[in-house]
Design a protein around this nucleic acid. Structure first.
Lengths: 344, 344
DNA sequence: CGAAAGACTGGGAGCGCTCCCAGATCGGGC
DNA sequence: GCCCGATCTGGGAGCGCTCCCAGTCTTTCG
């Protein structure tokens, strides 16, 4: 039999107990556990054996307290789980972040916030320093969660800035160039009555894509007609509604640039129902190059936004920021690319 | 000016500093922070003011260490983010869990594990007692993550048991009854050559749904024909492949029961391409009643599985288990219901 | 052969909080 | 005026770990 420290029941074994059993001091055990150098082979073996026998696992809370590191980072998504599930963009971001984190010891924590209550709980969680840094995507201009982040002083990286003067580090796709090239493509096809379906205008990405659209039209000497602009919120349903509206206001339109693939898919459905052929009657271009773009009928021409790479870049920036905190913020702009399929 | 403890810069203020500033002891501050009774109005006010002035926020790691509580629970999903995004089931689970947690102080942490490396990292995270309990869905029979969970001794609840003798608490839909009633419905419609597309057979849900199918056929005196059974993995693509296979082996079939809506949707696409009318030539029933079921052409008849309620029940069980740990495990079976639309 | 330079090791101090107990304070009843 | 209980309050003793320093034991070199 063995001392009290060994059995199950008396709680989990501690560093101290391992040390006692291995006949060494706490320091030595700590060194072994953390893979530090300067431990004799003999001591190391003894400790390892004691750890195995006792089934010792370090207590993270204690370690956190001592080192003031949490070994975890949060990816905050201020949307509902429905949205998380319906927009492939998030999946790509998650994949990118996870892959960049894969050879670190950092645990990725996904946190969804939509209610005020959840926001407060998140505040407590972050303030309590349960993570070493925060990633956040899908940020709306007036999102209170961001203030919360700034206030905690935790290293933070946004996926999608709120404005050009964003004071926090961020990774952004080249929305302007993407939208611009989409509309240029439509113009090149000979389209002249080009409508657009925007995203929610409290998001910079939506505003800038609209800008890109307008700029391309202006360059082509085309007027900016309000009735060619309808608003959505990036979701499929909103794309349908917006398209219906456009068709009503401007039956003569010959092309649509939607600020997201999902909205473009919704628009295509409405167009087809209205008897318009795509692209013969109306050409359609989306934005994102999400999986759905490949499965629409016909396959969708769209602007590729490197979402996964965006996730990776975000993680990379955050790691840098954690490693060397600094007042200055970093930013990365990822270029976009037009993928021509059959809808335009 | 003020003492070193007060200013910004010298790190975050501690309980002790708040106590000093308010002119009270640590105990009193702790009591105020935790809303405990037995503090005079005067002391309380002084402490609250000091907290506000200093911008004090308790350090969770320290609290965790002292209380051995983490105030967080993990929802582990052993799938890729792609899957998370494509299957609405997960979104519903998350929603249910979140809603049940909404009036607790527990932070919900979503953790995706797919690689071995991620699994090990999760082990460290859980062993380190960074959460008070674990929820896990989409469990495959031989999933090593479960052993990991059992080993940590953390309160755990599964969404979907691994077998009838599941030794861990779980919440399960009535898969047998659901599948059975789906096939009964098909039989009632006069179908006699009823095929099925199963889920991955290393998941109990898939096995049991297949059982329900067989049982209903047997009761109707129909033989169990192997060529009427094709296998999928719950995904849409696998449904397409399975359907193509079935059509090849048994062109005469007049109905299909798919173990998930996504597979049913894939099957419907293949059927349509093959020129079969639904339900006139081939009737189709799915399982889940996920959002896609409403949008197929024609709308899909399916077995409703109360996913959100499942999430809620899981959270509820876990809370109970955390509150009163016990050797015995709990289980909840949620009933399913056939939703008849137009595909069968 | 002695001293200096390494190589290891043990354990004190402390991270910030909660728990709990011993005291101080304040009334009210006799 | 005194005693007893109720109400508050301060602070010691940890929680389990890391950091770091002062030792001890070798090894090497002049």
């Amino acid at each position: 039999m063995s001392s009290k420290s060994v059995g199950r029941g008396e709680g989990r074994p501690t560093l101290e107990e391992v040390a006692a059993r291995a006949g060494v001091g706490r320091g030595t055990v700590s060194r072994v556990v953390n893979g530090a150098a300067g431990v004799s082979q003999q001591a190391r073996t003894a400790v390892e054996q004691a750890i195995a026998e006792l089934g010792y696992v370090p207590n993270r809370a204690a370690r956190s307290l001592a080192t003031s590191r949490a070994d975890a980072i949060a990816l905050v998504i201020p949307e509902t789980e429905t949205r998380l599930a319906s927009e492939p963009f998030f999946a790509s971001i998650i994949r990118g972040v996870a892959s960049e984190l894969s050879d670190t010891e950092l645990q990725l924590l996904l946190i969804l916030v939509s209610t005020e209550r959840e926001r407060r709980r998140l505040a407590g969680f972050l303030d309590g320093r349960r993570v070493d840094g925060v990633l956040m995507v899908s940020v709306h201009a007036d999102d209170p969660v961001v203030d919360l982040l700034e206030h905690t002083g935790l290293p933070t990286v946004l996926g999608g800035r709120r404005s050009e003067l964003e004071p926090i580090s961020y990774v952004n796709p080249d929305n302007l160039g993407g939208a611009w090239s989409a509309v240029r493509h439509l113009l090149g096809l000979g389209c002249r009555r080009i409508a657009t379906i925007t995203g929610p205008l409290d998001m910079e990405a939506a505003v800038v894509r609209l800008d890109g659209y307008r700029r391309a039209l202006a360059e082509a000497g085309l007027p900016d007609e309000p009735r060619l602009v309808a608003h959505g919120d990036f979701s499929e349903g909103s794309g349908e509604r917006a398209m219906a509206e456009l068709l009503e206001l401007e039956p003569e339109l010959d092309a649509v640039f939607a600020a997201s693939d999902l909205m473009a898919a919704g628009a295509m459905r409405v167009l087809r129902r209205a008897g318009r052929r795509i692209p013969a009657d109306v050409a359609v271009v989306g934005f994102d190059d999400s999986p759905v773009a490949r499965h629409t009928e016909p396959p969708m021409t769209t602007v590729r936004q490197p979402s996964e790479e965006m996730g990776r870049a975000m993680a990379r920036l955050l790691l840098e920021e954690i490693a060397s905190p600094s007042r200055s913020h970093r930013q990365v702009i990822l270029s976009t690319e037009l993928v021509v399929r059959e809808s335009a």
